[in-house]
Amino acid sequence: MARWAGPRVLLALVLLAALPGCVRKEGSTPMFDWIPTESAPKRFPMRLLRGDLFFADGKSIYVPDQRDVSNGWGKRGSVHIVGDALKPVPVRLELEWFSYTEDRFYQGAYDLPVERMTELFKKGVTDPDTGRPQGFERIIVGMAPEGLVSVWMAAGAEVVEVAAFTAPQTPQPWKRVIDNPRIARGDFIRQVLKEHLGAEGLARFDREGVPKGLYPGYRVQYRWGPQVVGDGKPKGLWTRSFNGENAHIGHAGPAIPRDSRPVPSEMLLDWTAPDGMPLSAKIFFDEAEIFAAFAKLSRGDAKHPLAVELETAGQTVSVSLRDDQYVLPLQKAAIEVYRGR
């Protein structure tokens, strides 16, 4: 079965660690097996100067820093194995970074939603395909334009946003990014953007700049759910959203039930056609089209489906957003259908 997955790191370590979802307590403090990692949008690279997750006892673990970040919003980044495998839930985040596309420094310190994070760590998720328990193994710290900070927790294919903050712009000495007075600041920024964005991405940035309110807008939730209709038997559906979340629905239903969801950016569907052929489809939504569709159908509290329709004996795919009055075909969505396994 085809699926998305984050970077895989094979560790030849002997760890005193619990099974997914299990907890060890030191005194009254529950301990979980997780590591921190960083994230930033591909279009808007950042330089993470310092990131620390603090525990209630004042100790901390660092988010991998002193690096340029543009791995994708909500995606797992670097992995540093430091300290004990089992750690308490962090209570506070402190973060400093530089935004290359804005030529700005940001800095902030924020209390984290400890109760919610603890509940997620304790419950974990159940893999919708295998029925096996999976623990949350990553805390992802993301930096976006306009000082937006998002914090996600990841368990297998599932990524859930647990907090978001806005950091203020702060003055910092330029040598915190590069301590070389022979390289002009503007020249260095241009060089970094060219390396991370490529010629096409840099041309787009030159045309559009940094749209205001883009990433806060990605966080808006709507009452909708995916629906597969037509010729074929669905086996698994993965959704990646503009706000960095990932969701997985399998034989046993969703890994995490959601009453509302952000706008999806991509979908991956596995199904079996009526003739028994295993098929998969990758669906890439056009950003302007799908946000306009959700804005039109977001009236009231009624839940509406985003329908993936299997047509022509289950061999072709179309998508539409629907409610009790309208069917809005998403005609600009790019859909790739291929034979599965």
Rank of each mutant, 00 (worst) to 15 (best):
F44A: 13
D129R: 06
L268N: 08
P128L: 14
V69C: 07
T170C: 00
D103S: 11
R8F: 08
E146N: 10
T166C: 11
L269K: 00
V82N: 02
A18N: 12
A307C: 11
E115Y: 03
A157Y: 04
P254G: 09
T166N: 12
L214M: 01
R132A: 09
I189H: 13
V69I: 15
R190A: 15
Y222F: 10
A281H: 03
E38M: 03
W271F: 07
G77L: 07
R341Q: 07
R76D: 08
N246D: 14
S28I: 10
A293L: 03
K235R: 15
H196I: 03
N246Q: 08
D127T: 04
P234Q: 12
K212H: 03
I61M: 01
A144K: 02
M1P: 00
T101A: 15
T130A: 06
L193D: 02
V319M: 07
R8D: 13
R299H: 14
S150K: 01
S318N: 08
T170Q: 02
R3G: 13
I81Q: 06
D127P: 00
G232N: 10
F285V: 02
S320D: 06
L49E: 15
R43K: 14
S60Y: 05
M1T: 06
F188M: 04
S70I: 00
I256M: 08
P234I: 14
E311R: 15
Q191Y: 14
L112I: 05
L328A: 02
V14P: 00
E137Y: 02
K296A: 15
K212A: 09
N180Y: 05
H251E: 14
G201A: 03
V9A: 05
S99G: 15
V229W: 09
L93T: 07
N180Q: 10
R223N: 05
L310I: 11
L13E: 12
L148I: 14
G156Y: 00
E266N: 06
Q221E: 04
E38H: 02
I283G: 05
L19S: 03
P88Q: 06
K42V: 13
C22P: 06
Q227P: 00
P278N: 07
I335M: 01
L202W: 09
G253V: 11
E195K: 08
S39Q: 03
L197M: 09
P216E: 15
A12Q: 04
K42A: 13
V79S: 00
Q227D: 12
L330I: 06
T239D: 04
E94G: 09
V263D: 02
F121I: 06
A292H: 10
K42L: 12
T126D: 00
E146A: 14
L120I: 11
M31F: 05
Q169S: 06
R76N: 01
M267Y: 09
D323F: 07
A334E: 00
V14Q: 08
A157E: 12
S78A: 14
S318A: 10
D84I: 03
K233F: 11
V337G: 04
L269T: 08
E208Y: 12
Y222K: 00
L237G: 10
S260N: 13
S78H: 10
G72P: 07
T239Q: 12
V23M: 03
